[in-house]
Nucleic acid binder design. Structure first.
Lengths: 173, 173
DNA sequence: GTCTTCATGTAAGCCGTTACATGATTAA
DNA sequence: TTAATCATGTAACGGCTTACATGAAGAC
């Protein structure tokens, strides 16, 4: 079975809301999905080209003042592809948790303490970031999807907080 | 900065305990680290070759009955490399949570319900698998690392259970 | 005038997966 | 004798990251 490029779907999903340029998609994801789905800087543009070639998006040149940009909108074929992915069962990701791997190989309490400490700090930072995104989302005007998107974020936050609690309980034993 | 192949460290970590063949490493990981660190079938052997070439492991041909196998043991250089990785800060993995991505793009309650349901079933299965591994670990004779390894597993289980609770609470709203 | 942000890419190379291959031994 | 498990790989392909590149517009 062939691996599918899920960046495609992330991009199509963003375009369902409104047409956007590559740059806009990139920064939009940075401000919203970044903490559960991040693309590296340069992937968006080539994927957009492929999507255009496949007839899943249409491109149009737009001007903002004198600035030129290439704005993409999703086609019906693109919507169909998105829906097919959305409705298909979510694949297992190969588990790769470096923190747990290290914990598994730890041999004494000092090492465990250090790993826990490091993990705690990282999780707290992530938690703050999630909450910033949450605030931003809460401040924007109500849309049909806002409630669900908030839920996705709250899910992430609840998840992080439970992990933080567990680490705090365990580290003092 | 170059991406490092973390499979190296997983293998070196296993070999810290005792020498083993590629096949043994593979099945050992299948029975222990599988739920936070899985390697695909054919990666172990080539990585072992590279490790041998780099002087991080030594190989020796052993016979079990008439069966031949290549047993690898870790060298001092290998132990040093492992320790360097172990002590270095744990890198961020690029977040790629397909479930949250889909949730983010959901537009109505039915879709959310379906996603939650699917996720719940998957988590329950994983939880059972973790618990099987836990039982196996608990049944073996005490070793200096057993307690820590149990902790790594309990961490995973606690994590899953909190996620399951959250989903159950949310899905009835 | 210089810095930030907007805006868009290319190229090299590692990494990892899937599929493909092979063959021996042992238990039922 | 047939299936499962032990045992070890190769090849092709696609995916993704990093580093490298470029340049315009607007803010200060």
């Amino acid at each position: 079975m062939r691996l599918v490029n899920k960046t495609r779907y992330a991009i199509l999903g963003v375009l369902l809301d409104a047409p956007a340029s590559g740059y806009e998609i990139k920064s939009l994801m940075g401000r919203s999905t970044a903490y559960f789905w991040r693309e590296s800087d340069s992937t968006i543009y080539p994927v957009l080209k492929v999507l255009a070639k496949d007839g899943k998006v249409l491109s149009e040149i737009a001007y903002v003042g004198k600035k030129k940009k290439e704005v993409f909108s999703i086609t019906e074929a693109g919507q169909a592809e998105f829906k097919a992915w959305f409705d298909s069962p979510t694949g297992d990701e190969t588990p790769r948790n470096e923190f747990l791997l290290k914990l598994f190989f730890a041999i004494n309490r000092d090492e465990v303490t250090r790993l826990f400490q490091e993990r705690l700090e990282k999780l707290k930072k992530m938690c703050e970031e999630y909450k910033k995104i949450e605030e931003r989302l809460e401040s924007i005007s109500d849309s049909p999807r806002r409630a669900i998107r908030l839920k996705a974020l709250k899910y992430g936050i609840a998840h992080l907080e439970s992990e933080i609690r567990w680490l705090n309980e365990e580290k003092n034993q």
